[in-house]
């Protein structure tokens, strides 16, 4: 089926050309240039907060690209989750780690030129392979949208229900893990003091072996196990 589709698209491609781009292609190209430029500024700017704000431009541009590809639901999910929550989380992270507001000259490490060489080499290889592979391939954007909410919802809840439910378990695990990891170290000595006798032998046995410096880590690991024991 795919082979026949390839044959038909190859046949269709005779009527289309590189030199006569459609309006959608021109819009995709312009938004893509903005997105790529914002991404480059994100990874090269020395002002940390500006990097997060340029990331908003890059992710928003990608949402527009999804809209141009008729993937409407993905576009709004992108706006909601990435622009709405991930960037806010990143800004909070920058704030809580006391990032300098002005220019920070040590934002880039010393292996910048090696990284640039690797990135340029992989970009050249990937672009060459991709252009060579899909030179005669066209996306047919006419007709009903392939990514409307109805189509995506039917595909998701008809064929992908089990991974969808497993994903909720993953999100719950990530939630619990983030709370456990970001708990204040000040609260852990009282926690081990109160949970120490009830949790049995592993708490006192583990603490002297790891030494005083590893105390908060082992204590924070001891908390969930004791909570599970309480359940």
């Amino acid at each position: 089926m795919t082979f026949a589709a390839l044959a038909t698209t190859a046949g269709l491609s005779q009527t289309r050309g590189f030199l006569s781009p459609t309006g959608v292609e021109i819009a995709f190209l312009l938004v893509g240039l903005v997105t790529f430029g914002a991404a480059v500024v994100t990874v090269t700017t020395r002002q940390l907060v500006h990097a997060a704000l340029w990331l908003v431009v890059a992710l928003g541009g990608l949402a527009v690209e999804y809209l141009l590809l008729t993937a409407e639901f993905i576009a709004w999910v992108q706006v909601l989750i990435y622009v709405g929550s991930v960037v806010v989380l990143l800004l909070f992270g920058l704030m809580l780690t006391k990032a300098p507001i002005g220019r920070s000259p040590d934002a880039d490490s010393g292996n910048r030129w090696a990284a640039l060489a690797v990135a340029v080499a992989s970009a050249a290889a990937l672009v060459w392979v991709v252009v060579d592979a899909f030179r005669t391939t066209w996306i047919d954007l006419d007709g009903p949208a392939e990514g409307s909410t109805e189509v995506t919802g039917q595909a998701l809840f008809r064929n992908w229900v089990l991974p969808f439910e497993a994903l909720s378990v993953l999100l719950l695990a990530a939630l619990v893990g983030a709370i456990v990891l970001s708990r204040k170290a000040k609260a852990t000595p009282t926690g081990t003091a109160s949970h120490g006798p009830s949790s049995g032998a592993d708490g006192p046995a583990a603490a002297p072996a790891d030494g005083p410096a590893a105390g908060p880590a082992s204590a924070s690991e001891g908390r969930p196990s004791s909570q599970e024991g309480a359940r």
Binding site: A39, F134, T137, W138
Partner: peptide, 18 residues
């Protein structure tokens, strides 16, 4: 739309992130 447009943009973004 030509498939090369999103594929090339995706490759460039990936290498920027790299």
């Amino acid at each position: 739309m030509h498939l090369a447009y999103p594929a090339v943009l995706s490759a460039l973004l990936f290498c920027t992130g790299l």
